[in-house]
Design a protein around this nucleic acid. Structure first.
Length: 566
DNA sequence: GCCGTTTTCGGCCCGACTGTTTTCAGTCG
C-alpha cells in the first residue's frame, strides 16, 4: 500500500473512481474529469496534503468544488462515503488487475467476475488454459500475459541517458533505410524527463510501409507488439518499448508536435486551437469551417498559427507554458553553453577515481573556467595538506582555477560532520544528507534548516537524496527550506548525476518562486563524469531556470563575490 | 465533473491498433 495522502496515492484513488465509473457506464466527461484531476495531482509539485491544510485544493486546475469536497472528506476521515459506495458496486478484485498494462476497467471486471483473485492466480489460470473456457480469446490472453510480464519487471522506467542511448541506436538503424527523410526521438526523451518509460520515435518518409517493415526488423528487437499503417511498437531487448510513427515529410511538423507531447500540453493546445477554429492532430491542422487542411513541415508553424511562440520541449507540460507562449513571455532558459564551472566534484582525496590535477585538466578541456573539488570531509582527511596541494596546482598553471571545497554530511542531530574552524579554512562548503534518510518530516526540516543557517555553508547538495529507480527522496517541508535558503543566500544544487537529478525539476520551479539561487554540478567521481552537466541542464530547463538563476554561469571573478572568498 | 475576455450552460483533443468484431469496443498515447 502506498503511503496515505501522498500525491501518488490520492491520484490512484481518483483513478480508481474513474475506472469504477467506466464500469458503471457513467457519462464520458464525468469519467474524464476524474482522470484529469488524477493527472493534475500526480503532476503538481505541491504536496496535496499541504495544499489541503492551506485550503488551496481548488487552485489545482481540474479540481472543482465536487472533487475538492470529496478530497476534503478523504483527508479528514481517511475515506469518502460516496467513493466507498461506488466501489461496492464493482468487483473488489478488479482494481488489482488495472495495474497490468493493456488491461482496462472492462477487462479487469471480466477477469474478476471469472473468479480470478490475484495477478499471480491470473497468470496461472491463463497458462493452464483455464481462462480460455471463460469467454477470453487466445490472443487476448497472450496480450494479458505479456502485460503481466511487463508488470513483473522490477522497474518500468529507464534513466534518461540509458533510454537516450537505445533511442540513438534505433534512430541510426532507421536512417540506414534510404526512404527515411528525417528520424528523431521524441516523447519524454525529447522533453528530457529524468526517467523515461518508453521510446517514441518519429520518422518522415514517402514510403511508410517500407519504413515500418524496416523498423520491425531492427536487430535489437525482442518482439513486435503491434504494427499498422502509420505506427508500430516493438519490445526492445532491454525491455523498453519503442514506438515508431511515420508521416510524409510535408506533415512532419505535426508529427513532431504531437509525439513530443506531453499529453496534457497537447490537450490544452488542441482546445485552444478549437476556440480559434482549427482542429489539430498528428496529421496536420484543419480549418474547421472550410475543412481545408494545412501542412507543416516544422512544428514552429503550428504554434505560430495559434499566435504563440514555440515553447522548448522541456517545458511542454501544461504548467503555464501555453499561457506564457501566447504572450511571448517564455524567458530565455539556461543552456549548456552558459555553464562556466563545476562546483561539486570528487578526487582521490576521498572517493573519487582521479587526482586533483587530472580532474582539473579534464574540466579545463571541457572549457570550464573553474572547478571546485569537494571531497567528502572524512574527519581523518588531511585538510591542510589537501589545501596546499590545490594551491600548488593553481600556481602551476592558469588554464583553470581550482576551488578547494568540502562536501560535509549533515548529521542526524543537525550538527555538521566537522568543526566550523575547518569549514572556515575552505573556500566552498557543500552540505548534504548521507544518513538517516527516513527521519520524520519535521525533524528533517529542522535538521536541514540548521545546516543552511550556518554561515560557512554555501550550497545544499542533492537536496532530496533520491536515487532514481532505487530510493525515494527524504520527506521535508520544502517551502520552509526554500524560504530559509532565499534568506540566507544558501545555494541549492541541481545534481546532474543521472541517477540523482536532484533537486527534481518540479521542486526547482517551486524554489525559484521563493527567490532561491542554484548551482548545477556533476558530482563527478571520475574525469569521464564531468560531461554529465547536460543532464543537470535538462532539469534546470524543465524548472524554467534562466542563466541568472544559476551561479555557475558566472565568470570566476563574479562567483567569488557571491561565495565571499578571497 | 470542470470551466468561462463569447459563455454559469453547453461544451469537453484526436486518432491508431487489436481482437473478434460484419460496424465496434477496449485500450493506449
Amino acid at each position: 500500500m502506498e503511503n496515505k495522502f501522498t500525491n501518488k496515492e490520492v491520484a490512484a484513488l481518483l483513478r480508481n473512481v474513474s475506472a469504477a465509473y467506466q464500469v458503471k457506464g457513467l457519462n464520458y466527461f464525468q469519467i474524464r474529469a476524474y482522470d484529469t484531476a488524477s493527472d493534475a495531482i500526480e503532476n503538481t509539485a505541491s504536496d496535496i496534503k499541504t495544499l489541503w491544510e492551506q485550503g488551496k485544493l481548488d487552485q489545482i486546475p481540474g479540481i472543482g468544488t465536487h472533487i475538492a469536497n470529496y478530497l476534503d472528506e478523504y483527508l479528514t476521515t481517511g475515506k469518502v462515503r460516496h467513493f466507498e459506495s461506488v466501489f461496492r458496486q464493482v468487483p473488489e478484485d478488479m482494481f488489482r488487475f488495472l495495474k497490468i498494462p493493456g488491461v482496462g476497467p472492462k477487462t479487469a471486471v471480466k477477469i474478476a467476475n471469472s473468479g480470478v483473485v490475484s495477478i499471480k492466480d491470473l497468470e496461472e489460470r491463463i497458462k493452464s488454459g483455464w481462462l480460455l473456457k471463460h469467454d477470453f480469446g487466445q490472443k487476448t490472453l497472450d496480450n494479458i500475459l505479456r502485460g503481466i510480464e511487463e508488470f513483473n519487471r522490477k522497474s518500468d522506467r529507464y534513466l534518461l541517458p540509458i533510454a537516450g542511448e537505445i533511442a540513438k541506436d534505433v534512430v541510426n538503424y532507421l536512417k540506414q533505410n534510404k526512404d527515411v527523410v528525417y528520424a528523431d526521438p521524441l516523447g519524454s526523451l525529447r522533453r528530457r524527463l529524468s526517467t523515461v518509460g518508453d521510446i517514441d520515435i518519429a520518422a518522415a518518409t514517402r514510403n511508410p510501409k517500407g519504413v515500418l517493415n524496416h523498423f520491425v526488423k531492427y536487430p535489437g528487437i525482442h518482439e513486435v507488439i503491434e504494427k499498422g499503417d502509420t505506427t508500430a511498437t516493438i519490445l526492445h531487448g532491454s525491455g523498453i518499448h519503442a514506438d515508431l510513427m511515420v508521416q510524409p515529410p510535408n506533415h512532419y511538423g505535426s508529427l513532431l508536435q504531437h509525439f513530443t507531447g506531453s499529453k496534457s500540453h497537447n490537450i490544452h493546445l488542441r482546445s485552444l486551437a478549437k476556440e480559434k477554429g482549427y482542429s489539430i492532430s498528428e496529421y496536420g491542422v484543419k480549418e474547421i469551417k472550410s475543412g481545408k487542411s494545412l501542412e507543416f513541415e516544422k512544428e514552429e508553424g503550428i504554434y505560430k498559427l495559434l499566435g504563440m511562440e514555440t515553447p522548448i520541449p522541456e517545458i511542454r507540460e501544461d504548467t503555464g507554458e501555453i499561457e506564457a507562449a501566447l504572450e511571448n513571455k517564455i524567458p530565455r532558459l539556461i543552456d549548456l553553453k552558459d555553464i562556466k564551472g563545476d562546483l561539486h566534484t570528487h578526487s582521490s582525496w576521498s572517493d573519487g577515481q582521479n587526482t586533483i590535477s587530472e580532474m582539473a585538466e579534464a574540466a579545463a578541456q571541457l572549457g570550464r573556467e573553474y572547478i571546485a573539488l569537494t571531497d567528502h570531509s572524512y574527519p581523518s582527511l588531511k585538510f591542510e595538506q589537501r589545501i596546499k596541494d590545490i594551491e600548488q596546482f593553481n600556481y602551476s598553471q592558469d588554464k583553470i582555477r581550482v576551488i578547494y571545497g568540502l562536501e560535509v554530511n549533515i548529521n542526524v542531530d543537525a550538527t555538521l560532520q566537522i568543526a566550523d574552524e575547518i569549514l572556515e579554512r575552505h573556500e566552498l562548503i557543500l552540505v548534504s544528507i548521507h544518513t538517516s534518510f527516513r527521519q520524520e518530516k519535521d525533524l528533517m526540516t529542522k535538521r536541514i534548516i540548521k545546516a543552511l543557517e550556518n554561515p560557512n555553508v554555501d550550497i545544499f547538495a542533492h537536496p532530496t537524496g533520491r536515487l532514481l529507480l532505487e530510493r525515494e527522496g527524504i520527506e521535508a517541508d520544502w517551502e520552509q527550506i526554500f524560504k530559509v535558503a532565499a534568506r540566507t543566500g544558501t545555494l541549492i544544487e541541481i545534481d546532474a548525476y543521472p541517477n540523482r537529478l536532484d533537486l527534481p525539476d518540479t521542486l526547482v520551479r517551486e524554489a525559484k518562486r521563493f527567490g532561491v539561487r542554484f548551482t548545477i554540478c556533476t558530482d563527478a567521481h571520475h574525469t569521464d563524469q564531468l560531461n554529465l552537466m547536460e543532464y543537470g541542464i535538462s532539469v534546470a530547463r524543465r524548472g524554467w531556470l534562466e542563466p541568472k538563476d544559476v551561479v555557475n554561469t558566472l565568470p570566476f571573478e563574479k562567483l567569488r563575490d557571491i561565495l565571499k572568498f578571497d
